[in-house]
Amino acid sequence: MWRDLKSVFWAIPKGLSITFRYLFRKSVTQQYPKNKPVLEDRYRGLHYLTRYDDNSERCVCCGLCAAACPVDCIYMEPAETEDGIRYAKIYEINELRCIFCGMCEEACPEEAIFLGHEFEFAAYERDDFIYTKEMLLANYDNIEKERVAKNIKPLIRKERQEFKTPAAPLGH
């Protein structure tokens, strides 16, 4: 009986001791949205589609990101320019469905898609979360502007890789 009472009354100072201990430590709570969180370099947020330095899209619509995507949130339709270059006529990511696993950037053979640091893209309509190619490229342009302003080294090589060889002798 006595022992039980002791444990009941002792529990209160024991528990409060933790509270008071943390009272004098440095706070871990972040005051979002007043203070922005510090994100790690490898944080995976909103996607962006990159460009070459001549402003052309890197994406050739090969479909590997869509194939790698575990939740099937990427939809694309390839097409051909008049010059015979393959490009994405439609490229859409449903960001509501996306689980930000980063498999798409892993799969991309052209270094065209990346997950950026943007995470504040709330909207009122579900349709607004379907990011089209133009929106994803605009994301990149913003990021690129910021990078140039901050003078940070680019993540990827920006010039288009070309065959630099002399052409084969032609003519029949």
Binding site: D83, F163, K164, T165, P166, A167, A168, L170
Partner: peptide, 11 residues
Amino acid sequence: NKIRFIEDSKN
């Protein structure tokens, strides 16, 4: 360098 058959010298 790889050999490349270029069809159109302009493009």
